[in-house]
């Protein structure tokens, strides 16, 4: 053992000592939250964020590579340097701002909605499912409802289908395709709730230079309307888009 360990360390230390290039950016995502990010039939990361992210990298003249990571450990792995950005439908909140930095939002403040199998569920007192460590889970905990948390979005919806929870609370855009294709099994209940400050790209707090680059790229995409086109493509014609001044106006 004594002989092997220093050898292994030396090997690890010298492996791949190629000259450093600063411009490969690793983009972390969850890959389980369509239409924001998901794995397509070919096994690649796809979705709204993939398209926006690739365009941002092009504009910022960076080479980007997509990496999948579990939602639970997505922030620890960012601050530890295993990848450089998070684009995973992550809403900008004060709580997260304490640990990581965000760019300006590339998706306007999201509406979240309740979905249930029956009309007339009182979402303020029912059992409501939400994904762990999301703003939706935080919101449900503040209402009078009983919160049940799940690790993935998929499980929150399944909990409603099998009766474990009365309703699920999640981003409206995640729920819309599911409700449409459920053949009437799932319905929206209660009011839509605007939460968070929109969705932004998460970066390490020390990475100010990279954040400025992406911020500028997002601004330019907002200005020339490409971001709005992508929003409409992935979320439908009626989605919120950015106005002339970069603020949000609804509908198109």
């Amino acid at each position: 053992m004594k002989k092997i360990i220093p050898g292994a360390v030396a090997l690890a230390l010298t492996a791949g000592m190629a000259p450093a290039q600063d411009n490969t950016i690793r983009m972390g995502t969850e890959g389980a939250y369509p239409p924001y990010n998901f794995i397509n039939d070919a096994g690649e990361v796809d979705g709204f964020e993939r398209q926006v992210g690739d365009e941002l990298c092009k504009r910022a003249e960076l080479t980007c590579e997509w990496v999948k990571n579990d939602w639970d450990s997505i922030i620890p792995n960012l601050v530890s340097g295993n990848y450089d950005t998070i684009m995973a439908g992550m809403s900008i909140t004060a709580e997260r701002e304490e640990v990581i930095d965000f760019t300006q939002n590339y998706y306007p403040p999201t509406a979240s909605a309740y979905v249930s199998t029956a009309e007339g569920v009182d979402v303020m007192s029912a059992i409501v499912a939400a994904q762990t460590a999301t703003i939706q889970a935080g919101h449900v905990a503040e209402t009078g409802a009983t919160l049940v948390e799940f690790a993935t979005p998929e499980e929150t919806v399944a909990a409603v289908r099998n009766g474990e929870a009365d309703a699920v609370f999640a981003d409206l855009d995640y729920l819309v395709p599911l409700v449409e294709e459920s053949g009437g099994e799932l319905v929206f209940v209660g009011d839509k709730v605007p939460l968070g400050d929109g969705i932004g790209m998460g970066l390490r707090e020390s990475d100010t230079e990279l954040r400025d680059k992406f911020d500028a790229a997002i601004s330019s995409m907002k200005e020339d309307g490409t971001l709005n086109d992508m929003l409409r493509k992935w979320f439908g014609e009626d989605t919120q888009v950015y106005g002339e001044d970069g603020g949000t106006g609804s509908g198109s």
Partner: peptide
């Protein structure tokens, strides 16, 4: 730096430029 762990690019393991396969 706060919660961040920052080392120089050359010290990254594996290097940021390495293909996904190496990671």
């Amino acid at each position: 730096q706060g919660a961040d762990f920052v080392v120089c690019q050359a010290a990254k393991m594996p290097l940021g430029t390495a293909p996904q396969f190496v990671h």
